[in-house]
Design a protein around this nucleic acid. Structure first.
Lengths: 345, 345
DNA sequence: GAAAATTAGACAATCGATTGCGTTAATTGC
DNA sequence: GCAATTAACGCAATCGATTGTCTAATTTTC
């Protein structure tokens, strides 16, 4: 059974004895069509249940009102909030969003980028996967002057737009906070170092230690592949079994931080007295775990909205691709909860 | 600055001295094109970086390989996992997904449905909003023989596909479990009763009570608008301040269940000894809260995959719209954790 | 009152891929 | 050896909306 064919402006034109061009212009309130005609056309369109075919319009204009979104995994708190922000800002302006996830597999990311390109998105918003080191699959967009916005996990050098948080400062502040709470040996759960977010967080951590006259002990820095709960548990155990265990842990995400808390509790270690813990992201679980996890909050929704605005700004103003990376850095917020509060202030 | 125009099959045709139709067929391995020509065309396409214009193909075929997804909020654990499942199954078959969220506002849902329709999606997957009572905005799809799949929150009577869990049985089992654990006065946090999911959960709760010879006390059933943490807290306080408080609560979602646990603890009520609690959804927070929350797990990802399969099955086999609601009911799984475990079995 | 200007709308090309049908040329059949 | 197939490819219409250009009718101008 085939799809029924739809009612088009040609059908309307025939019915009203106007030309298709007049119908098209009338529906768009073009100035060269009389008010009377516009009223007639719109009324008939309404009655007949006419709906424009966006595919046709997009093809003709060589421009779809669709924004491509390429992420690693949709079902992660930060990502889903990001997408939510993107969608809200987009739909407000009449744009649709086409979503693709790579599941952190590089090959999928390349395939998805192609698919989004083929769909002629008017712009693309992407957050890089764990495996991604080359970004050649985004060059096709730039070549066609289609704006690319990288968000959160961004490449080092790509002449385009970027929306990030200040990972360095956030990490610096989080670590400083632990130091202020009396921690002397602070461990760090780091993520893959080819990704800016984890690299910057580590840098902030190291610099905070140095600035406060604390030694940087490489044995306290554990770099994980995926920052999963399992890795968090294993690393916590490993750290605590050494002769000189840490008295604080700055984790690159909440998943490992919560995992650390649960593991420490299981081991009978007091939090925050013996080991203070701080995470990153402000996932829902962070406020539920006991003791509640101190963390760094991402303005995920706003980041998404900003990404959309970047795309629209480029598209509507017909700007050229920026000659340099045009970067928006958003502020983070340190949320201090029980897992790191040793002193009453 | 305009978008550059792209390299098309016409450009390829000119370059290779073939007709556009031959190019088109060669790229699709059409049998009437010689292997030699196919090789030549594909090689040149690759070299020139040719990319098909999906808009053009879709317009011509009156069929886009795009599935529309209409949900209430993207950034909710269940929904984002659902979408993830939809996307995985879709991309595997070369389909894209266009996402729109209503934020639980009926007007948005109608607008989004229109937008997805205008984009000529080949099918639509929808979960109804809290406010939604009429579903006329989905009729346009059926009229055009575009498959509609309702998932989780589904309308009562719509001749189309449906993917749900067995809310009744899940609720029945959850309540029975509480009874088995010795609860005699079980409260229920119910959701809006015009939605199937909450109506069925309530029914399952009521029937389990009846079947076990317990009285159904309307004062123990609290119907909430949005099942938010705030409502959960307020309702818990209200319940516990009565002269005859409950000794168990079956909550329609995890948000209110966790909220109940936190509130009970704040009030000094022992869980599960004085009040046992069980939730619904298996959100990440449920395993983190203390005591860990017993709950009902949704197979969210699988539901998403199944939705996509339903669409593809309809599209690929060119089936007609089902004459009756064609319903897939998935099994749930009762996860028993500390919040409801009174007896050692 | 005739030329100029404005108004209202029609014509036809265009976007890029697809496909039914037609046309050669090569191959097969008897 | 000639008709009948088959193979390989071209022609041109089509999907539905958009838009530059053109035309006819009406209004304005001096």
């Amino acid at each position: 059974m085939e799809q029924k064919k739809s009612f088009t402006i040609y059908d309307l034109a025939r019915k009203l004895n106007y030309s298709p061009s007049t119908i098209s212009r009338a529906l768009k309130n073009h100035h060269s069509i009389s008010d009377k005609t516009i009223a007639i056309v719109k009324k008939a369109a309404e009655e007949e249940g006419y709906r424009p075919n966006i595919l046709a319009a997009s093809l003709r204009n060589n421009q779809s009102k669709t924004i491509g979104v390429l992420v690693t995994r949709i079902n992660r708190p930060f990502i889903s909030s990001l997408i939510s922000g993107i969608e809200n800002a987009a739909s407000k302006e009449g744009y649709n969003i086409l979503i693709s996830q790579s599941n952190d597999v590089y090959k999928n990311e390349v395939t998805s980028a192609k698919a989004l390109f083929d769909s002629r998105v008017c712009g693309i918003i992407a957050s890089l996967g764990m495996e991604t080191e080359s970004i050649n699959h985004f060059k096709q967009f730039s070549k066609m002057n289609i704006p690319v916005v990288f968000v959160d996990r961004v490449p080092a050098d790509f002449k385009s737009y970027t929306v990030v948080i200040d990972n360095y400062t956030a990490a610096f502040n989080a670590t400083t906070h632990l130091i202020e709470q009396g921690c002397k040996r602070i461990a760090h759960f780091a993520g893959a170092q080819h990704l800016n977010v984890y690299r910057d967080r580590k840098k902030g951590y190291v610099d905070a230690l140095v600035e406060n006259g604390l030694a940087v002990d490489d044995s306290l820095i554990i770099t994980m592949k995926s920052l999963s709960a399992e890795e968090g548990e294993a690393s916590t155990e490993q750290l605590m079994q050494t002769t000189n265990p840490p008295d604080g842990i700055f984790c690159s995400n909440d998943t490992t931080a919560v995992s650390a808390i649960l593991t420490l509790k299981k081991m009978g270690v007091k939090i925050p007295e013996e080991v203070a813990v701080i995470g990153f992201n402000d996932d829902p679980i962070s406020s539920i775990v006991e003791p509640a996890l101190s963390t760094v909050s991402h303005p995920a929704m706003e980041m998404g909205e900003l990404c959309t605005q970047r795309i629209l700004q480029h598209v509507l103003k017909k700007e050229g691709t920026p000659k340099i990376a045009e970067c928006s850095v958003l502020d983070t917020h340190l949320i201090i909860r029980a897992s790191s509060t040793r002193k009453n202030t």
